[in-house]
Amino acid sequence: MTDNNFNRRAFIQGGVALAASAAAWPGRAQGRAFPTKPLTLIVPFAPGGNVDITARTLGVPLTRHAGQSVIVDNRAGGGGAVGTGWAARAENDGHSLLVATPGQLGTLPEMIKVPYRADNFVPVAVLSRTPVVVVVRANDARFKTAGDFLQAIQAKSENVTIGHAGPGSPNHLALLQLEDAAKARVNAVPYKGSGPAVVDLLGGQIDAVIDQVTSSAPHLKSGGLRAVLVLGPQVGGMLAGVPNLAQQGIPSFDATTFVGVFAPRGIAPQTVASLQGWISKSVAEPEFSKPIRELGSEPLAESAAYLQRLVQEDAVLATRLVKQGRLKAD
């Protein structure tokens, strides 16, 4: 665990002060000096995943509202640490922003050495939330219901192999929480992203995948996969009727994944206010909300304070799991 790399109090206090300062600058939020060049959204993952798709979808309406083009810069590696470190070193004039999950600031610094601290960033806004689900092959007769699946993993034989998107990913944390809640143990199989895990599930190499619904959505729609359990509040859409843990009589937890925007520390409050206004308008646009909903996510224009809280919650969870020896880099 690397507590020295994660100054939670400074991050929270800095974010609150920033939000308060930004609110005090309403008349200057639309200053003509910003932006003076294209906005760059740094995504610390490879193209094609949930975070990348969300950033690219945001770029369409944001270009119009900000009056400048928007570039998505993918810098994958280290579970998100490489791109996040790159964003921490970017100019703090508002033209370079990090689009990531709270886990890049809350989870990773607790489990590996990273080239940044959480207080190198200030939160700007939440963009979306995505349900996390347990998916199985549609024709797998062993797991016809959520009860079947839970009974299998509660046998603690560790014969049920469950894939996830890699150590420290939201899907991995969800699996560890599922084991605790259900008093179960499984044979966890880490992958470099959800895509390879889903491929192996379809091929019969593993029994299930803990996944953000966006990655499994095409196969849920085509009938190749079936969702048996939602790890959070019950939701509608393509997951309508899929039960959650509470409906199975098991203490529930919320593994919902969020995507947010962060800025390098030192950004001017009036610049943050401008960005928050443009992002809020962009998230409400059909150009953003319609494709995001089609992926199984929900557009969510939440505040900087809400994003701070998510980072803090991830850090607390990661700290506990690291101390238990269950959250490791490998």
Rank of each mutant, 00 (worst) to 15 (best):
V72K: 07
P264G: 05
K183H: 15
L178D: 04
P243F: 01
G103W: 05
A315I: 02
L58N: 04
V133N: 01
S128V: 14
G15W: 02
S157V: 13
L317R: 10
R265T: 11
S194N: 05
V316H: 11
G266F: 11
A181H: 01
G277D: 10
N50G: 13
L295H: 11
P131C: 08
E91L: 15
P243K: 06
Y116E: 02
A329H: 13
I112M: 15
V186Q: 04
R129V: 05
G296H: 01
S215A: 15
D140M: 04
V235N: 01
F149I: 03
V228Q: 04
N50I: 09
G277A: 14
R185N: 14
A87F: 05
P26K: 06
V209L: 02
V228G: 02
A301R: 09
W278R: 12
V70C: 08
I267A: 09
V186K: 00
P38T: 08
R309C: 11
F6A: 13
I153Y: 02
P61N: 09
V43Q: 03
P102I: 06
L229M: 03
K290S: 12
P26W: 03
V136C: 02
T257W: 00
V261W: 05
E298T: 13
L295V: 01
N4A: 15
F143E: 00
G14A: 07
A208H: 00
L150F: 03
T84Y: 06
N4C: 14
E298G: 12
A20G: 10
E285T: 09
L317V: 07
I53F: 14
D140I: 01
P35E: 03
R293I: 07
S282L: 07
L317W: 07
S289V: 03
Q104G: 15
L245P: 00
A138T: 00
K113Y: 12
T101P: 07
L98I: 03
G237Q: 06
G78N: 08
S215V: 11
P196M: 03
A182M: 08
K183L: 14
A76N: 08
S297R: 13
L225Y: 00
D73L: 15
N139G: 10
N5E: 14
A141L: 14
H164A: 10
N92H: 13
G27W: 10
